[in-house]
């Protein structure tokens, strides 16, 4: 398979995931789009090495993550996921969709997660990555991923139980 064909087969179908991930980190549609476009240019320019990559999807997601973090460093802005931590009521990327569905309570619950938990949660629940892939994307150990995801789900479960019992999210 030619490098161009490899790019079209393995990378282009992942652009939606890359965008949603970038959006979840940057919380800005235009910035997320620019970041992903830049990632595509980078990947395209090193497409000759694509055959060496065992897991192109995780690799593309990792490049997206690095791009977003580099931008945040270069522009000296805090990733909004950090700013939003423990500030329920703020709208975040994934959650805008939910708001449209009048599921504001879920917005509040997810805002309770730490930035790391939120990132792992997004990669698992929205992008459906395996634990191994999440570890690869975020540069964490497998157990760190599992522990953080379990803690995130436990927090969410506790909040859902409160809603079940009292009818509202705290």
């Amino acid at each position: 398979m030619s490098p161009s064909k490899r790019f079209e087969t393995y990378i282009l179908p992942v652009t939606d995931k890359m965008y949603r991930y970038a959006y979840s980190l940057l919380k800005d549609g235009a910035q997320a789009q620019d970041a992903v476009q830049e990632c595509l240019v980078k990947i395209w320019s090193s497409r000759a090495k694509l055959h060496e990559i065992k897991n192109p999807e995780a690799w593309a997601m990792r490049i997206t993550r690095n791009q977003c973090y580099d931008w945040s460093k270069a522009n000296r802005f805090q990733l909004i996921s950090d700013k939003e931590h423990n500030t329920p009521g703020n709208e975040s990327s994934d959650l805008q969709t939910l708001m449209a569905d009048q599921q504001l309570w879920l917005t509040r619950i997810l805002a309770l997660l730490s930035p790391k938990q939120h990132e792992i949660y997004h990669l698992r629940e929205v992008e459906e990555l395996s634990y191994q892939d999440i570890a690869e994307v975020m540069g964490l150990s497998l157990s760190e991923v599992k522990v953080n995801l379990h803690r995130a789900r436990t927090k969410i479960k506790a909040e859902l139980e409160k809603i079940e019992a009292y009818g509202v999210a705290n």
């Binding site: 476009q37 969709t97 939910l98 599921q103 629940e125 859902l160």
Partner: peptide, 24 residues
């Protein structure tokens, strides 16, 4: 709430309304 939660998760997976230019 659990039902809404799982439905909400699926909603998050809605493909974004953006398109990207093929760099080549």
């Amino acid at each position: 709430p659990e039902s809404s939660y799982f439905r909400g998760l699926q909603k998050m997976q809605t493909p974004p309304k953006t398109s990207f230019q093929h760099p080549g």
